[in-house]
Design a protein around this nucleic acid. Sequence first.
DNA 1: TTGATAAAATATACGCGTTACAATTAAATA
DNA 2: TATTTAATTGTAACGCGTATATTTTATCAA
Lengths: 211, 211
Amino acid sequence: MIIQRTKSKQNGQPGRPALTESQILRMREKIADAAQILFLQDGYSAISIRRLATEIGISPMTIYKYYDSKIQILRRLWSQIFKDLFTEIALISKRENEPVPRLTSISLAYVTYWLKHPDHYRMVFMSEGVSQPEVSIFVEDEQISSGLGLISQALYSALRDQQKEQDIKIKTDVLLCNLIGISHALITISNYPWSNPEEVVKMAVLGVLNS
Amino acid sequence: MIIQRTKSKQNGQPGRPALTESQILRMREKIADAAQILFLQDGYSAISIRRLATEIGISPMTIYKYYDSKIQILRRLWSQIFKDLFTEIALISKRENEPVPRLTSISLAYVTYWLKHPDHYRMVFMSEGVSQPEVSIFVEDEQISSGLGLISQALYSALRDQQKEQDIKIKTDVLLCNLIGISHALITISNYPWSNPEEVVKMAVLGVLNS
DNA sequence: TTGATAAAATATACGCGTTACAATTAAATA
DNA sequence: TATTTAATTGTAACGCGTATATTTTATCAA
């Protein structure tokens, strides 16, 4: 009898089996897909967990089995968006070999991406429910931090190709901040009479190259 | 009798008189003062209308007599913060007469203000409950838009003193975006190894001057 | 098939912002 | 003092995110 118990014990406790990893991932994806559509359509704050659950056909609380909170669902969408952006930038980075045009293209790509998808920008940077701890968590996200590093590295090496070693780190930071600021300002302060975005970006690049 | 009526009628219906303008303003200020303390302490979203009312010693419903919504209280605090910032900048602007040092000082002041008061920055730019319409309303606020114009004008004229007319508008936009971006990036992406803020700002100013 | 068991899924409940509406209080008049 | 009018408060309701309690479900041993 003891031997029989041992035989069946290999994985065999009683009780409903835990979800497999792939079942969990599939469910998370299902929730994220529905959320993506609804958030972009009506905005993050306008979509309730109850509404999202109903749309998927599950109980509201089931969502909390797969995500700790509503903001986690949004953060997953952020990662996907950044993946898109960084993929695009990596492509451009490979296509252009001359340092200055490459720097310009990358910079332009970053700003253009957000200006082309202001709804995504808002979903990433301006959604509700993004409290202090949540926002500065950006860099904790592997996807985002590696992508940010990728951009800054590209800027860094492009600048190094072009310039003396001195001040390169600072100039990289300046340009990075500038690109972030241009995207941010042009989208959020939309009624201000900004110059043409492309010209602004080109001037920003010129600034770090010529000073 | 008719004459008597006329005499007492000058403003005299029976009944409790409506609040005077100054009474309304004083109550609004009282609410805002309490909110300022509590919001900075615990964060906007953590403070409920019910809690705020209790703290002031009035009924929750009374708050809605003086503010249309919770976000309006926050917006009032925004205005006060911007007033502080712009006052400081105006002071510096008057103190410095040489164009380049003035430009540098103003730029530094803008960034330094936010870096010194990251909690204010977060309360203005990163509080919860700030949906799309609310955020791009910045420029509708008299206080804010006039202050923004003040900065950009100062930058514009400083640049004009220093440079040929050409591209000044674009350079102004670049620097403005850069200052916004530097503040934004250094505060929100706080784990990234940014260079010294002062050096970054100075380099940013150099960028628009030398290109 | 029938319990036992453990995980998944759901139901319930709480405090939130906000609104509507009824009831109460306060300050003026006649 | 009675009347009138506005300010203020009380109460209830709605949908929200979500913590906790409860129920359902899928597996085991017997």
